[in-house]
Design a protein around this nucleic acid. Structure first.
Lengths: 127, 127
DNA sequence: TTAGGTGCAAACAATTTGCCGTGTT
DNA sequence: AACACGGCAAATTGTTTGCACCTAA
């Protein structure tokens, strides 16, 4: 019971992700696969991406909703995976990182966002 | 022409954001202000947050849509603000940062995400 | 007076979910 | 045959926008 079966769609979706260095959205993957799998549905793409992400086979990058901050000077954040709270961190913003990124990539780097994840002190205590 | 006026709502919204160390969503701000401003609308909250963010008075934190990555080992990313592409960066993932964040915050830090922003080489060339 | 702002509701966009037929085991 | 899976469409959720009215300047 509760076992997972083979699924052609899941394999397709995983292969598509594995075969690209882009970081596609669900929609992009859907568009890529649609031509050769005309009856693939977007819902299935979402379902399998979530499934794969939940079991750790792939990674998700996202803030589910926009958040706002009156402090406009760049500073690192901590995001609690249990309660969703976002905290400011009193760590220095390291401008040298931007320089390193520029050198490593050749892109025009104007800044960065550093977000830590884990369980916040409040949620830790509840256990 | 094109001048900006005083607006009680904008002031309220900005004050609400200024007065918290949380990083609220538009919805949260709306809920906070609603009781004392019963005819405030969520659309106005969004409109003013966007306005304030565009002029740099406040900061936005978000990935507009989820993106997926078959590479599950943590690594830094570069996000082009012109075309929206996300690239991998060949910079080392610095585990020492997590330790620093733990010490600075007291939260349980399990990892971090480092995202650089700017204009990618491709978009730079188009100009 | 006049252009910008607001409220409201409709539109849009991203994602999830229920239902039911299909395919894997 | 059982039950996970996929297709489809409806439902949710987050965000934007059009329009008629309101308000600061």
């Amino acid at each position: 019971m509760n076992g997972k079966r083979y699924s052609r769609q899941r394999e397709l979706i995983y292969a598509a992700l594995k075969g690209t260095d882009q970081h596609p959205t669900a929609e992009m993957i859907y568009q890529w696969l649609k031509p050769e799998n005309p009856n693939l549905s977007l819902g299935t793409v979402y379902r399998n991406l979530n499934l794969l992400a939940d079991e750790g086979a792939i990674a998700r990058m996202a803030f589910p909703v926009e958040r706002y901050d009156a402090e406009t000077r760049p500073h690192p954040h901590f995001c609690c995976q249990a309660c969703g709270s976002v905290y400011d961190l009193s760590l220095p913003y390291d401008k040298a990182l931007d320089e390193q990124a520029l050198l490593a990539s050749g892109h025009d780097v104007t800044g960065h966002e550093l977000i830590f994840y884990g369980t916040c002190a409040k949620c830790k205590d509840v256990h």
